[in-house]
Design a protein around this nucleic acid. Sequence first.
RNA 1: GCGGAUGGCCGGAUGGCCGCGGUCCCGGAUCCUGUCCGGGGUCGAGGAAAGUCCGGACUCCACAAGGCGACGGUGCCGGGUAACGCCCGGCCGGGGCAACCCGAGGGAAAGCGCCACAGAGAACAGUCCACCCCGGAUUUCGGUCCGGGGCCAGGGUGAAACGGUGGGGUAAGAGCCCACCGCGGGACGGGCAACCGGACCGGCGAGGCAAGCCCCACCGGGAGCAAUGCCGAAUAGGAUCCUCGCGCGGUGCGCCGCGGGCCCGCCUUGGGCCAGAGGGUCGGGUUGGCAGCUAGAGGCAGGCGGCAACGCCUGCCCCAGAGGAAUGGUCAUCGCCCGGUCCGCGAGGGCCGGGGCACAGAAUCCGGCUUACAGGCCAUCCGCGCAC
Length: 137
Amino acid sequence: MTPPGATGSAKNAGTLSPPAALSRLDILKRRTDFLRAARAKRQAMPGFILQARRRGSDEAPPDRIRVGVTCSKKVGNAVARNRAKRRLRELARRVLPQHARPGWDYVLVGRRETTETLVFADLLDDLRAALRHIHGE
RNA sequence: GCGGAUGGCCGGAUGGCCGCGGUCCCGGAUCCUGUCCGGGGUCGAGGAAAGUCCGGACUCCACAAGGCGACGGUGCCGGGUAACGCCCGGCCGGGGCAACCCGAGGGAAAGCGCCACAGAGAACAGUCCACCCCGGAUUUCGGUCCGGGGCCAGGGUGAAACGGUGGGGUAAGAGCCCACCGCGGGACGGGCAACCGGACCGGCGAGGCAAGCCCCACCGGGAGCAAUGCCGAAUAGGAUCCUCGCGCGGUGCGCCGCGGGCCCGCCUUGGGCCAGAGGGUCGGGUUGGCAGCUAGAGGCAGGCGGCAACGCCUGCCCCAGAGGAAUGGUCAUCGCCCGGUCCGCGAGGGCCGGGGCACAGAAUCCGGCUUACAGGCCAUCCGCGCAC
């Protein structure tokens, strides 16, 4: 199940994702979904916090992976928040299709300074590690 | 060349790989003809998008007339504009050698209020020291002390002391008188105006603060795109009709008429709303979707008018429309800055760095103001120095 290129070196990080990867992800848009995820499992990493929750059977199709990103005002002004959210979305797009589980909701929470400044390849590794931790591997 | 003033402009560049939102085209799937999938073309943040401080557009609500009042805002003059508290030109006052900059800049003989500290005295002021006169006492004959009066020139205080300097005058003084300056009024002249100049007159009688109240002139309904409209879905509250019921009056005993309270700033005329119980009918606040949602006081170029702000005309262009919120992620090269180091007398140049590249992200849309901002470019002008 290891996808090609998952060794994740910084040199060819740009060619990791297969096309149309994001088509397997849905975007969380409702406040109640975020609140439910925040009450479930969480894993803090230096550059972000990952929250994850297995959905109930009646909420959404069970084969879908859903993801949301959020940054509070603690992250900084509007420019800093937007940049942090864009990097978190890119992380999700690169990692979740191969490593996440269908039927789950994931929320990535930005952190002050680090979400914007850490090396991107390290963030990719951290997200994969956080997913392993959540799923108890 | 150095220092300064003003106005305007830019605010990283290029290329791989992988993505996102709008729109158009092509192909496919489903076939409830609207969704979904794939491919391609094209467009996709700012000078402040920011603060939300003014002015509008646009929606909905309110709005009958007259009189009286209340509240808020603006405040030299003229022009520009859809409008403004904005902009342009001018005036006055202040600062600067200058270019130029700064100023909420109407009214203080309508009234009220305030003017700390210091000082004798701070608004129809006042006698602390000093000066002068008169009377008395005393005397070492210079004066000293006491009482009464004159007086505001001098000292001293202050941000400010009821004009300044000089002369005459006087017991000493004082615009008391005179000259000049200042001040007030002002025929007349210039200017659309603010305002400027000013013959002549007046000895010169009364300070400042109106970003204290106030007076005067002018302007001003309220709320905001989470406005507002449409569509779809379960529960509590509304609108209308019918019946019954309360009080008073009239009754031909079938019924008929009237009724209280509150609100519209106040008053007059006038208008609106609500009012017990039961039943029937009807439309609607919150969450989701769609619309509003971007062609506009629009941009660019040229011409004409105007000192300018700006206006008019012609031609061309279409220039973000998201909605947990797209406009990017990552890598490389270049550019700029910084630090270290080496070479050179110096201007400068080489190398290294897993150092840095500002302020900041459209949210209905425009016109302004204000605030933030690494670095850089252009034009005009002023002062000083050098050369000719």
